[in-house]
Amino acid sequence: MTVDVYAAVYTPVIVAAVVGVLFIASTLFVANLLAPRIRGRTKEAIYECGMQPIGQGWSQMNLRYYLYAFVFLIFEIEAIFLFPWAVVFRRLGPFAFWEMMLFLAMLLFGLAYAWRKGVLQWE
């Protein structure tokens, strides 16, 4: 077989995911058999602490953290570069080490800039 061997190492994840899904499905199936089901208008209303629900459930809201999300994205991508570096940098020698220190310095400068600009302040 000429399957990519390295990818094959991770196929069990899919198998295990299927097992997990089957487990939940069977649990919910059993619950479905055992549980009563009596419908009703008030029962199927959404819960707002016992009061009559006001307006639509899908209301507009302010996602205040989109700036955090940008910074998050930058650092998360950088982490993917850092993981392989962390394993081999001793073998690669001082150049790889200082290269990454420079990279980190730029990133941390970015973080400091965002901090000073007030991006990290939750208002």
């Binding site: 959404i46 819960y47 707002e48 639509q56 459930g57 899908w58 209301s59 809201m61 996602l63 205040r64 953290y65 955090y68 999300a69 998050f72 650092f75 998360e76 982490a79």
Partner: peptide, 26 residues
């Protein structure tokens, strides 16, 4: 869920998850 509390809660959940993901990775 079509519920305001649920929407709010999930928005907070994600804000928290992405914020603490980074320290964990580091």
């Amino acid at each position: 869920s079509g519920n305001k509390y649920a929407l709010l809660g999930s928005a907070r959940f994600v804000a928290q998850l992405i914020s603490y993901e980074l320290p964990m990775v580091v």
